[in-house]
Nucleic acid binder design. Structure first.
Lengths: 352, 352
DNA sequence: CTGAAAGCGCTTACAG
DNA sequence: CTGAAAGCGCTTACAG
């Protein structure tokens, strides 16, 4: 019944089993599964078939031990929305377990606390670090890391820096696209709730909104722009102020989902149905967006993919760093997308 | 400057470096870091000091390769709340990356779809599987796994089964404790929103609530008990029905946080301040609880710890299974705790 | 209480 | 295009 048994039981298919099955060396099998060039097509096919038949899949531990590209990476974050962070973490964890990287997670209170956290990581033997927003936009944190000669990559950076590697979306374009969509739905007076002032993305998102409004020849009512802090509560309060004015916007664009959810709650409290009486849209497409009701129309930012990619980028950079390859910053810009759910409605183009 | 360089660069402290530093064999160092008994206290101390000094920490890949206890485990889930799932995943991912386990994640539509997903896992070489609720309570799914002779452990099982390993909290007690707390705050007419009918925990939580009410000599108004489905929307609707009646409860206990958040929104819509006019409490303490405003008083279930523990239990079980050790189910019951935030208020004990 | 040998499953670097 | 050898960092099993 049992196939093969390891030193202490268990039956696992190894690269040797496949090699024997095909009648080649383990080396050749290794080449095939790693997609290397120098293998005869016929041999490749036979190996593939065998891999399939024996249901072989490589032992990640052995691989990362052999390749030596197992690294220890640190993740530094500071007070983001829980929903954002957990999606972020999911991406990081799943990629780092795939790549056999060891993870060290630290939080800090803004850029000021970063030094201590970073020292700690260095001491713990981290080979590089991932920065979550808004830390990724801090020139101060970047400087510290550069002085330490520590490879790092920023996620969701809004301020492009030719010297740092990052993976982002184009916040300006994304905010613009959502704004245009709202205009298309007939909205003319659109309120905007800004994100935390220390997050650079907040500024860019507002700029994208403002630019799209201007391009459409629409005015932004200063009373319909409010400062938020990325929290539900701040979105709630901001919307309450905005909606208690004599003239109300017909739509509110919040810079993240938590604030949008807060805005919806506030509208409900004031007896305004969403989306019948007010359209509310968010940004990020975190769990919050699809957990509340009505579910939120929002800009999808593929947070967990971006986080995963940042791990791969960092690992690459660490490899380069170790082998003395000169550093070259990469900027990966992912696509955003507009997700239309139930919190937005067409109010008919009342126009020229 | 550089300490030691591996085959392709990088400077990592290995067990050999520590051994050399102390003047013992790598074996001895290994014993110390694994906390084995047979080491002279003096030797142990020296090794520890050296580990500290050189900032050594073991290479997980090498360890799991050597111990052979690297396994492939599957995680099967079906339609839970996103907030719950993401905390669950966090625990699973972080523990499995620690233990060097490979993870395969599949979802299915209820117990019916489980067979296919499980076959797939088996084919992919999974050595065992983790079941999230409500799948963990399905006798049908348990049966399939047992027939496959596949080790598995259930998380958050409400229905104790002497033949299956699991990690849970005592839902009955937890619901009872929250209920007593509400009574202590002066509430007499407490509404209850049940969870999804196919989740066994829903029933148990209600039972715990009912038992505590009865023990306190309080009646449950049948109009103040509503069926929910663990979603925000269902909590919103249930609360709306409950709060539109002539007699309203002064508190609502929802079986999870998403529904509690929905209930708060519904109360707001009806012009009822929370917690001034209505206390609302939830269950689980997921991200939702602390994301909304007012933040939710809730029963904390350490989901991510529980999920992590389930991985360790499963790995243990797989090891036993491999070595032919007879199966013995373990039931780990973790502590819950009451988290009091801003959605609950003391309305004064109106009574003897 | 301590150590020398062998092996975990894979890959790199070197030959052919 | 393919393979034999050696090594990644750790632990098990066996001696002493």
């Amino acid at each position: 019944m049992a196939r093969k048994v390891g030193r202490r039981g268990g039956n696992i298919v190894t690269i040797h089993d496949v090699a024997r099955h095909v009648g080649v060396s383990p080396m050749t099998v290794s080449r095939v599964i790693n997609g290397e060039k120098n293998v005869r097509e016929e041999t490749r096919a036979k190996v593939m078939a065998s891999v399939e038949a024996l249901n072989y899949s490589p032992n990640l531990a052995a691989r990362s031990l052999a390749t030596q590209d197992s690294a220890r990476i640190g993740l530094l974050y500071s007070n983001p929305s829980v929903a954002f962070l957990s999606e972020f973490l999911l991406g990081i964890l799943s990629e780092s377990s795939q790549s056999g990287a060891q993870l060290l997670i630290e939080s800090c209170e803004g850029p000021e606390g970063a030094t201590a956290a970073l020292e700690k990581m260095k001491a713990a033997g981290c080979d590089g670090v991932i920065l979550s927003p808004p830390l990724s936009d801090s020139t101060r944190v970047a400087k510290i890391l550069q002085d330490m000669k520590m490879p790092f990559v920023g996620v969701a950076m809004a301020r492009p820096d030719p010297n740092v590697s990052c993976v982002t979306i184009d916040d300006f374009k994304a905010a613009g696209a959502m704004t245009r969509r709202l205009i298309e739905l007939g909205h003319r007076d659109i309120g905007f709730i800004k994100g935390h002032p220390n997050a650079y993305a907040s500024q860019i998102r507002y700029d994208g909104f403002a630019a799209a409004m201007e391009k459409a020849g629409l005015k932004i009512d200063p009373g319909h722009v409010a400062q938020g802090y990325f929290t539900y509560r701040s979105g709630f309060d901001a919307a309450e102020r905005m909606l208690s004015q004599k003239v109300r916007p017909t739509a509110i664009f919040a810079s993240n989902d938590d604030m949008a959810a807060g805005a919806v709650a506030s509208a409900h409290r004031l007896g305004l149905e969403v989306p019948e009486k007010l359209t509310v849209v968010g940004f990020d497409d975190t769990a919050m967006a699809s957990s509340v009701w009505p579910e939120l129309t929002t800009v999808r930012q593929p947070i967990s993919d971006m986080a995963g990619l940042s791990v791969r980028l960092l690992l690459d950079q660490i490899k380069g760093h170790r082998s003395g390859r000169p550093f070259e910053a990469v900027r990966e810009v992912r696509d955003f997308s507009l997700i239309e759910r139930q919190s937005s409605a067409d109010i008919g183009s009342a126009s020229s």
